[in-house]
Write a protein that binds this DNA or RNA. Structure first.
Length: 324
DNA sequence: GTCTCATG
DNA sequence: CATGAGACA
């Protein structure tokens, strides 16, 4: 979900060119959910293969990778590992929302209310473990590297950005800031949404606070580890509290404050990863998309050709060793 | 070239 | 979400 900082966070509008020849770490779960909720048929239901399995996610991964490679951006997909204990409550909460949406969807369907069907279908976005596994398979077939984070994917992305191994974290929410990511990029898409860059230094400078303050603000507003935060406190009041050194008055009423803070300040991350692109396996990729998941051949052929073309271009630019 | 729209 | 087609210019 992400902390609801809203428009308190200053962002810079950039162009795709600014990301040229850069490597970015993708907060995979965040983006995968994005695909799941937005890639839908008219009635609001997700894309599915003939076995009824959801394929919206594969569609998104396939096209977004090609889009980025085409623009000389190297994507590294980072997946979640074992979530911190405190996240369980969040998961239960989300599950409840989805169950309720499912009920609403069913009743809208009974009424034949298409508008409501769309509305509620979009909330039923549960990412099956199998879909996540297949997403990794798809990345392998495309030659795109992915990393299994030990814990939160966002923390791993941020760590890599801090180290300078990647230029920025790609996510739609602002939580990477809390893990100290120097840059977060939003809206890498072919649609005409403005591409946004959020810089940690800019954020702290504009608000005139420290990273520690920002984390405290997040905890006041509410994070994945203390949903809802402190009652009655939003971004504005939170900023006022940390700026006027009044955090101490709230800490005692926040359950697990120290534990939550520690999750952001010292997350579990790994140094074991490779950022190298590999050669795609076009034949197997075809099978995965067309045979296994019923993508229309006519439709993906131009993109497959594009992928091959990009690979050949890269091969001619780099030595064989650095490519493989 | 740029935009909107329907489609998967 | 990305794509292609079609409108418009």
């Amino acid at each position: 979900m992400g902390v609801q900082f809203n428009d308190l966070i200053p962002k810079k509008e950039i162009s795709l060119k600014d990301l040229k020849n850069k490597t970015v770490a993708i907060d995979s779960m965040n983006i995968l959910y994005q695909f799941l909720s937005s890639i839908r048929l008219r009635d609001g239901s997700p894309l599915r293969n003939s076995k009824g399995e959801i394929t919206s996610t594969y569609n998104g991964i396939f096209y977004k990778n090609i889009y980025m490679l085409e623009n000389d951006i190297t994507p590294i997909w980072v997946f979640d590992g074992k979530p911190p204990e405190l996240k369980h409550k969040t998961r239960e909460e989300r599950k409840k929302v989805k169950e309720k949406a499912m009920e609403e969807y069913i009743s809208a369907k009974e009424e034949g209310n298409l508008e409501d069907m769309q509305k509620y279908a979009k909330r039923i976005n549960y990412l099956e473990p199998k879909v996540v596994e297949n997403s990794k398979r798809l990345l392998n077939l495309m030659g795109i590297p992915f990393i299994n984070a030990p814990s939160e994917g966002e923390a791993q992305c941020s760590y890599m950005a801090k180290k300078g191994d990647v230029y920025a974290v790609v996510s739609q929410d602002y939580d990477a800031l809390l893990y100290g990511a120097p840059r977060t990029v939003r809206n890498i898409t072919a649609s005409n949404k403005p591409l946004e860059l959020i810089e940690l230094d800019e954020v702290l400078g504009a608000l005139n606070i420290t990273l520690d303050n920002l984390i405290d603000m997040a905890i006041l507003i509410g994070t994945d580890y203390n949903i809802g935060g402190v009652k009655g406190i939003g971004p504005k009041k939170a900023l006022d509290i940390v700026k006027n050194n009044k955090m101490g008055e709230y800490i005692k009423n926040i359950e697990n404050y120290e534990v939550i803070k520690n999750i952001f300040k010292h997350p579990k991350v790994t140094d074991e990863y490779s950022l190298k692109l590999g050669a795609p396996n076009i034949e197997e990729l075809r099978k995965f998309l067309i045979d296994e998941n019923n993508f229309s051949e006519n439709r993906i052929l131009p993109s497959l050709k594009k992928l091959e073309k990009i690979v050949n271009k890269k091969k001619s630019q780099t030595t064989i060793e650095s490519w493989f």
